[in-house]
């Protein structure tokens, strides 16, 4: 019985988690794009952009791990991102 109850509790928690996602998924997508842009502006050279890295970019480099990671991931998946947006923007 206890196991049953805990399973039900778990499923409710998961359900709640899913709902929370529903209130942030587009925001998260937007955030990643903002971070990607920020890194690109300062350090686009890392992904092959012809612009040389800026002085400021190098200076801030130690603190931009997350942004750079996102930038590199984005640059790798750039060829096939369309499908993701059908989900994020909720076509259905």
């Amino acid at each position: 019985m206890k196991e049953r109850l805990s399973k039900i509790k778990e499923s409710f928690l998961l359900f709640a988690k899913g709902l929370r996602e529903r209130s942030t998924s587009a925001l998260e997508a937007e955030l990643k794009e903002l971070e990607n842009a920020f890194a690109l502006i300062l350090l686009g050279a890392l992904t092959g952009m012809p612009a040389p890295p800026s002085y400021l970019g190098i200076k801030l480099l130690p603190f931009l791990e997350r942004e750079i990671r996102i930038m590199i991931c984005r640059s790798e998946s750039l060829g096939d991102i369309f499908a993701d947006w059908f989900d994020i923007l909720d076509f259905g």
């Binding site: 925001l27 997508a29 923007l89």
Partner: peptide, 11 residues
């Protein structure tokens, strides 16, 4: 912007 209408509406 998405946080104004799209996201809360989705929710």
């Amino acid at each position: 912007p998405v946080h104004v209408l799209l996201q809360p509406r989705d929710y």
